[in-house]
């Protein structure tokens, strides 16, 4: 690769560092605030915490029932993510590489769903659930998430899979493999970057989602992290130090997930680059 001049490199770093400070500031603010008392968070936003209130963290965990919410959220999100990735890629494969009459139609049907505002389906959904007398069901919740993940996932996978060279498929087919085998053994590994991108969206969608668990899950023991955060806003009392602590706690799994997935993305990207 061509070497860069030193000045351009320094300029780059300077800009990037400045930009990094800008981006990181709010999170830094949350971190510092999580160790302050509520009043200090308001009155002295920039002052270093004094005294350092480590107890905000255990309190956050206790009051928000964060521990349980945490596990629930992880469970729901992981299952949703895996199922969405699988069936989304399957659909994407069909829509992108097996043209059939009406494939464009189905594609548009899927993608149009990206616009469905979640609020608008609450009433009809609760109606149905009320009739069927289904409450506090994780299957229901996860099915909802999977359903709402489909537009984005299908969109990403369809477009991504379009980029896989036809010759690869043809070679495998000539060699006598079935399409299913081809799909699981060849297509999926090649589409890891696409799947990962979609999965990141899906993970975050379920992780952050507040509305559905709020309305459809009422049992405390089944609550999720987004609800746990809400419990800090008592009707007439607040605990901003604790909220910040809870925020910091709740962003750890997504960060870890990303770090883990990122390696997969690297793998896929390198593989892609080598294959050309």
């Amino acid at each position: 690769m061509q070497l860069e001049t030193r000045t351009s490199k320094t300029l780059k770093y300077a800009f990037l560092t400045l930009f990094t400070l800008l981006v990181a500031f709010p999170v830094y603010f949350a971190l510092v605030s999580s160790l302050k008392s509520s009043i200090d968070v308001f009155l002295k936003p920039f002052r270093w915490p004094q005294p350092v209130m480590w107890e905000n963290y255990p309190r956050a965990i206790a009051i928000g029932n964060i521990g349980v919410c945490f596990l629930n959220s992880i469970y729901i999100t992981v299952v949703t993510m895996v199922v969405s990735a699988l069936i989304g890629t399957m659909a994407g494969y069909v829509l992108s590489r097996l043209p059939f009459k009406g494939s464009k139609f189905w594609y548009v049907i899927f993608v149009a769903g990206m616009m469905i505002p979640m609020q608008s389906v609450i009433i009809p959904l609760s109606f149905v659930m009320g009739k069927v007398q289904v409450h506090d069901s994780y299957i229901m919740l996860m099915s909802l998430y999977i359903a709402f993940n489909m537009p984005m996932t299908v969109f990403i996978t369809t477009n991504f899979l379009k980029g896989i060279p036809k010759e690869l498929e043809e070679a495998a087919l000539i060699d006598g493999s079935t399409r299913t085998y081809l799909f699981f053994r060849i297509i999926i590994p090649l589409s890891i970057p696409g799947i990962t991108t979609a999965s990141i969206f899906n993970f975050l969608g379920s992780w952050n989602n507040l509305l559905f668990p709020l309305v459809f899950v009422s049992k405390k023991s089944m609550q999720v992290i987004a609800i746990g955060l809400q419990s800090f806003f008592a009707q007439r009392i607040s605990d901003y130090g604790g909220v910040m602590a809870a925020i910091i706690i709740s962003i750890l799994p997504p960060i870890l997930a990303y770090v883990f997935l990122q390696e997969k993305v690297e793998e896929g990207m390198v593989a892609g680059a080598v294959k050309g």
Binding site: I87, G88, M90, A91, Y93, V94, L95, L98, F100, W106, I109, F110, G113, I116, S120, V121, I123, P124, L125, F127, V128, S143, L144, I146, A147, F148, M150, P151, T153, V154, R179, T180, F183
Partner: peptide, 29 residues
């Protein structure tokens, strides 16, 4: 199409979830 079986079985899960839990409710609303 000789792939019809595959197409249907691959498309079905995604479509099922989506239609049942997202599309029909929005049409209802």
């Amino acid at each position: 199409n000789k792939n019809t079986g595959l197409i249907i079985s691959f498309l079905f899960p995604a479509l099922a979830f989506y239609v049942l839990m997202a599309l029909i409710p929005i049409v209802y609303s």
